[in-house]
Design a protein around this nucleic acid. Structure first.
Length: 957
RNA sequence: GCAGGAUUAGCUCGAAGGUCGAGCCCGCGAUCGAUAAUCGCGAGGUGUUGGUUCGAUUCCAACAUCCUGCACCA
């Protein structure tokens, strides 16, 4: 084709790159946002608008973020940005959870033996440094994946202001008498003299001496079974820890399992039926004979004699009594086992521990008193033998808990702990538990099963143990009377300590002596004592994070009550959702959230958890550096987050491909065809537009409404799939393909071309805004390539979602034109038939591209009349050179349309590639068709006009 | 063991008591005027076993597998 002819074709032109080069360009965009600064600009733009508060759950600062964390933050970002674009003032204050055991353990490991020489205040300093390091790292990582928020002033549980609110929250419970101090069995390392958390315990193989011990029944045995009247009856327990026998307070039976009374050698033994054979063998009970059989519950509250102490032992029931080893009868020492303790509480048993912090037995018989627990085993066994209570002893290898740090065996030991009672009476009636259960029903749980789950957990949870024997946390800042041990409860003193914390942080508790904090002349209300010591325990970190929204509001009262949304993983039903709820109920008697949304877990393609050691780990920051943060975001939008989601390298790759399609199909194609379009002067009114353009604009407006409602229900994956479909199928494969003829070959300023440009411009303007919450980088990149408009904000993120006027241009245009809608769905259905027929012709080598063909349609009514009405458009819709139409006598719908394909008549126009019988009629251009001839005349006329007028501005500059 | 959840195409998803469907991937082809692009055609599936029903992938029950919490090895 001659150069001057080629130059009359309006080919796309844009600097908007096909290759996103996200890893390189995203940081530039981040720098631009930082310079604005974007978060503050958005808040400013929404000042005075109704607020929407998503309260951030604080991630723990002990390492870099992982894919689950990234998903969590991306989802929150989608919510905040979409609310912003919907017109809300949606602040987002990210938070971090900095205290607690995992950090203290890691710091312990770093310090090694040095820790023993350090004061608590120094250890805390190390922990603070550790937490701050990861807070800073995570902050950068969240920003890198495009999250907007108040990152320069986040909330953190280790700031003085926050710590003071934690303490204040505790005092609110304390002053209302929700708090008590009591015993509880915890893991205890006697070597390190400290309580251990579950996380600090590791199991190792250990050989222990196990014993079968006789407990004699004190009651009249006929009350259990008449056959036992007058007999000498005992039960047999089995234990691997003989040293706990001095603390034995009860024997536990399974309520529903069968027990038998075995007579042997003139005595009767009560053991589980299922274990009777084993007991007979091990304890050498000759000629054992079953006298009676009954369920374990018959033995509840029976009285037995302790084998060597002057103590009545109570028969109790417990579901955990197992029937696989032992005797089916469990000796119960409430001070030395978690379950034993719980059972003890239920039956009101004494849980006082007579084992001291060094693991030494106190207040016992001379045989074992003063010995370390494991050293007491042998003398206790000897004692049992002497008293005739030992039926059998043997060695057993089993797994036993050990201290993670010194690797010595640990024990259970009842110690004093602080609790918030779930049965605390509330001022307005009910208890903390019952009022919380009521409140749960007023929250919008999403998914809905959350309500039942939380309800069940609150129903069955024990009192909240809020104390820990650790240093990295907020101290329970209560004074204890030195003479009577009673804690001081005085609101005036509490206020003073809270103020101290707010001023100097909780480190002050470690720096100052009690006397320096307490007002002079403080007297114990219990014993009139005047000397006090400081409680050394710290709070459970869940109490800290549970106070997060209270802390945020204390600092900035403009945050309303309650917050609109909490969004965290399912593990937070036990954690943050629950602790936040209880803290809010205790202080404000209402839940802290209106709605709770729970994403699923992030797993690999096999459904396994992601982990570095497994090698299936996907690092979101690494992906951002290699493929782009946008890809992580696009992935986060693609999955149905309410269920477990899959994250893998393969999926990231696929989403990178998919992203590229959106970029080319939508962004680049439209921008390339707007190079000479100035909306102020070139836009065509809706009513003057081509029917196809009108139809596509209405489709887009319908999509916009759909997307807005999906944003409202957080159905991001629906947005993802619908947008994908829209870009690939509706736009690229159909609309844009059809439009190329009009955009490229029509005279630049012709109505047909301007109509198309107006439509694609409006579509892109709308889609850019609608995608901004998810594709935050790309949308803002596109923003800078869009034709300039007055009042266009500096960033898409400062703008709002499109309204009807932005797509339909005029409120007089109806949203829906049912007839047009119907007609196009018919035309599209026929189009499919045509494309199939063309493909068949292509396979027969009759044609190559569609324009080499002409088709004849034989259609029945009502399809025929639709086709007839749109006849002049059909060749463009089908991208062929000519369409003939005949009425068929009968048939059914679009599927009944017959399509005949033949080679197009005439010659190929060199300019537009359509075939026409009129090619050659223009003497100036003998190789072009009549349409092109007309177009060239228009171009020439415009050029002449422009010349006479002088400079001609080609759209925007 | 307890509580909650899941199972639909190779992958990510959508729908629905009535032949399920989309995009990607894959195969074949067209095109070199969206070109490290674009277009067309094609192939491909409801975890297992029962029950309710004219009809079940959908409703119900069991089972299997997986995920998340929690409890536990005296």
């Amino acid at each position: 084709m001659p150069v001057e002819l080629k130059s009359t074709i309006n080919l796309p032109k844009t600097d908007f790159p096909m290759k996103a080069n996200l890893p390189e360009n995203e940081p530039k965009m981040l720098a631009r946002w930082e310079a604005m600064p974007i978060y503050e600009s958005i808040r400013e733009a929404r000042r005075g608008a109704p607020t929407y508060v998503l309260h951030d759950g604080p991630p723990y600062t002990s390492g870099p973020i992982h894919l689950g964390t990234a998903l969590n933050k991306a989802l929150k970002d989608f919510v905040v940005k979409s609310k912003t674009m919907a017109g809300f003032d949606a602040p987002y204050v990210p938070g971090w959870d900095c205290h607690g055991l995992p950090i203290e353990i890691k710091v312990d490991q770093q310090l090694g033996r040095k820790k023993l020489q350090l004061k608590p205040i120094d250890v805390r300093q190390e922990c603070r440094r550790f937490a701050q390091k990861y807070l800073d790292l995570q902050r950068e990582q969240f920003k890198r994946i495009g999250v907007f928020g108040r990152f320069d002033r986040p909330y953190s549980t280790m700031t003085p202001q926050y710590e003071s609110v934690v303490l204040e929250t505790f005092f609110a419970f304390y002053e209302k008498d929700f708090v008590y101090k009591g015993l509880r069995a915890v893991y205890w390392c006697m070597h390190d003299e400290t309580a251990l958390a579950e996380a600090e315990v590791e199991y190792q193989k250990e050989t222990s001496l196990t014993v079968w011990v006789k407990y004699t029944l004190l009651d009249d045995p006929s009350r259990i079974a008449p056959q036992l009247a007058g007999k000498r009856v005992s039960t047999i327990i089995w234990t691997t820890t003989p040293w706990t026998l001095p603390a034995s307070m009860a024997v536990a039976f399974h309520p529903d399992e069968d027990y038998v009374a075995l007579e042997s050698g003139g005595e009767v033994y009560l053991v589980a039926a299922k274990l009777a054979p084993e007991v007979i063998a091990k304890c050498h009970l000759p000629e054992a004979r079953e006298l009676a059989r009954f369920p374990g519950r018959r033995l509840e509250r029976a009285n037995f004699q302790h084998p060597f102490l002057d103590r009545k032992i109570l028969g109790v029931l417990a579901d955990y009594v197992a029937m696989d080893t032992g005797t089916g009868v469990v000796h119960t020492a409430p001070s030395h086992g978690a379950e034993d303790f719980a059972t003890g509480m239920k039956y009101g048993l004494d849980a006082t521990s007579h084992v001291d912090e060094k693991g030494i037995l106190r207040d016992g018989l001379p045989e074992y008193d003063g010995r370390k627990v494991f050293d007491a085993n042998a003398p206790i066994v000897a004692l049992l033998e002497k008293r005739g209570a030992l039926l059998h002893a043997e060695k057993l290898e089993h797994s036993y808990p050990h201290c993670w740090r010194c690797h010595n065996p640990v024990i259970f030991r009842a110690t004093e702990q602080w609790f918030i009672s779930m049965e605390s009476p509330m001022p307005g009636g009910g208890t903390l538990r019952s009022r919380t259960l009521e409140a749960i029903q007023g929250v919008n749980w999403d998914p809905a099963w959350g309500e039942e789950r939380m309800f069940n957990m609150i129903t069955s949870r024990p009192d909240w143990c809020i104390s820990r024997q650790r240093v990295w946390g907020v101290p329970i800042a209560v004074f204890l009377c030195e003479s009577c041990g009673k804690p001081v409860k005085d609101p005036a003193i509490h206020r003073k300590v809270v103020e101290l914390f707010a001023r100097a942080g909780s480190d002050a508790w470690y720096r100052k002596d009690a006397d320096a904090i307490l007002p002079p002349g403080t007297v114990c209300s219990n014993c009139r004592g005047t000397k006090f010591e400081k409680e050394t325990d710290i709070f459970d970190v869940w109490l800290e994070s549970g106070a997060s929204y209270l802390a945020l509001r204390a600092a900035e009262p403009e945050y309303g009550w309650p917050s609109d949304l909490y969004l965290e993983g399912g593990d937070q039903y036990r954690g943050w959702f629950q602790s936040s709820l209880l803290c809010a109920m205790g202080t404000k008697d209402s839940p802290p959230y209106r709605r709770v949304v729970t994403p699923g877990w992030t797993l690999d393609e096999q459904g396994l958890a992601l982990s570095k050691s497994r090698g299936n780990d996907v690092d979101p920051v690494e992906i951002a550096g290699r493929l782009g943060a946008e890809i992580v975001r696009w992935w986060a939008a693609s999955v149905d987050f309410r269920e477990d989601v899959v994250g893998s390298e393969r999926l990231m790759q696929r989403n990178a491909e998919n992203y590229r399609a959106i970029r080319n199909h939508l962004f680049r194609f439209v921008l390339g065809n707007l190079y000479d379009f100035n909306p102020q002067t070139d836009a065509v009114g809706f009513k003057q537009m081509e029917a196809l353009d009108q139809y596509m604009l209405r489709q887009t407006w319908s999509l916009a409404k759909e997307m807005r409602s999906w944003y409202e229900e957080f159905a991001f994956h629906k947005i993802y799939h619908r947008v994908n479909h829209f870009c690939v199928v509706d736009l690229s494969a159909f609309y844009f393909d059809v439009l190329k003829d009009r955009l490229y070959t029509f005279a630049p300023n012709s109505l047909g071309r301007r109509s198309a440009q107006t439509a694609i411009w409006r579509i892109l303007e709308a889609m850019t805004r609608l995608l901004a919450p998810i594709l935050s980088f790309s949308a803002d990149e596109v923003w800078r390539y869009l034709p300039p408009l007055r009042d266009r904000p500096a960033s898409v993120h400062l703008d709002r979602f499109p309204e009807r006027v932005h797509l339909l241009g005029d409120s007089s245009v109806s949203e829906i034109d049912a007839a047009q809608q119907e007609a196009f769905s018919t035309l599209l259905a026929v189009r499919e038939q045509v494309l199939k027929a063309l493909e068949e012709a292509r396979n027969r080598k009759e044609i190559g591209k569609g324009l080499e063909a002409q088709v004849t349609l034989v259609a029945p009514d009502p399809v025929y009349s639709v086709l007839a009405a749109y006849q002049p458009q059909l060749r463009y819709l089908f991208i062929v050179s000519a369409v003939g139409l005949e009425r068929a006598p009968s048939g059914n719908g679009a599927a009944g349309v017959k399509v005949q394909v033949s080679r197009a008549a005439g010659r190929k126009c060199e300019r537009c590639w359509n075939y026409s019988t009129h090619v050659g009629e223009d003497r100036a251009y003998p190789t072009i068709c009549e349409r092109c001839s007309q177009a060239l005349k228009e171009i020439a006329a415009t050029a002449t006009a422009a010349e006479s007028k002088g400079a001609y501005g080609e759209g925007h500059g």
